[in-house]
């Protein structure tokens, strides 16, 4: 199986603190990887480095064919927008295709089709014209996932997506992620929960004291217990 992401001797710093030291790991296409670690361990910094928002202090990250940083589907930890932000679901999902627009000013027909397809894949087409602020927490998270999906055909990165979800919404959200992974998407998800229920991927990247280890989920759970 070909690699989606390969990190070689990757070191990342936050200010003067070294948060990741000389990490080497590979994520294969169609992998579903959960990144775990204590608060402040460097999970988000690692994700930002993959997205190109943080420069490595040494080492490098390379991508498999067809993956560009601008077309990675990203779901941030939280959206800091105004609580009453006026936006329809379609406006938000469509904005996911902006990374593909290059210098073009206006959305093309294919961008709108991508956004419609993302809504359809997550079963939320009926929310297309709904106002974002009127949605439940679970629905909002699905809309943001649809936006990430509109951005990518290959790789999704999610930063603690289940944080503000109740148990039922979380199960539903994880179900949607599993389906996307089965359809061929590579998924990387930061989670702070170490329950088997939350480690839904096939691999776990754990970060502890700047050391990064990548292992199959079953092996990680055994060693963790």
């Amino acid at each position: 199986m070909s690699h989606a992401i390969v990190a070689k001797n990757l070191s990342l710093s936050y200010g003067s603190n070294k948060v990741i030291s000389s990490a080497s790991f590979a994520i294969d296409e169609r992998d579903f990887v959960c990144i775990v670690g204590a608060n402040g361990s460097g999970k988000s910094t690692l994700v930002k480095a993959i997205l190109g928002l943080v420069k490595p202090s040494s080492g490098k990250i390379s991508f498999g064919s067809g993956i560009e940083q601008k077309t990675i589907g990203f779901l941030p930890q939280d959206v800091k927008a105004d609580l009453n932000f006026p936006a329809t679901v379609f406006e938000i999902v469509l904005s996911g295709t902006l990374g593909r627009l290059g210098m073009k000013a206006f959305y093309r027909k294919e961008d709108k089709t991508r956004a419609e397809e993302a809504l359809k894949r997550l079963g939320i087409s009926k929310l297309r014209n709904a106002s974002f602020v009127d949605l439940s927490g679970g629905q909002k998270q699905k809309v943001l996932l649809a936006r990430a999906l509109a951005a990518t055909s290959k790789l999704l990165i999610l930063d603690e997506p289940s944080n503000n979800l109740d148990y039922k919404s979380r199960k539903e959200f994880y179900g949607a992620l599993k389906k996307l992974n089965e359809s061929g998407l590579t998924i990387i998800m930061i989670t702070h929960d170490l329950d088997a229920e939350d480690l839904i991927g096939n691999k776990v990247i754990s970060i502890k004291e700047a050391k990064v280890e990548c292992a199959p989920t079953a092996d990680f759970l055994r060693s963790y217990k």
Binding site: L51, S95, G99, A105
Partner: peptide
């Protein structure tokens, strides 16, 4: 606004996402 309204929307709604897709 005519030529960058889509990007202005993306930045206004979610700056972190906008940065991630290269805006």
């Amino acid at each position: 606004y005519i030529f960058a309204h889509n990007r202005i929307f993306a930045i206004t709604f979610d700056e972190d996402f906008a940065k991630a897709i290269g805006i």
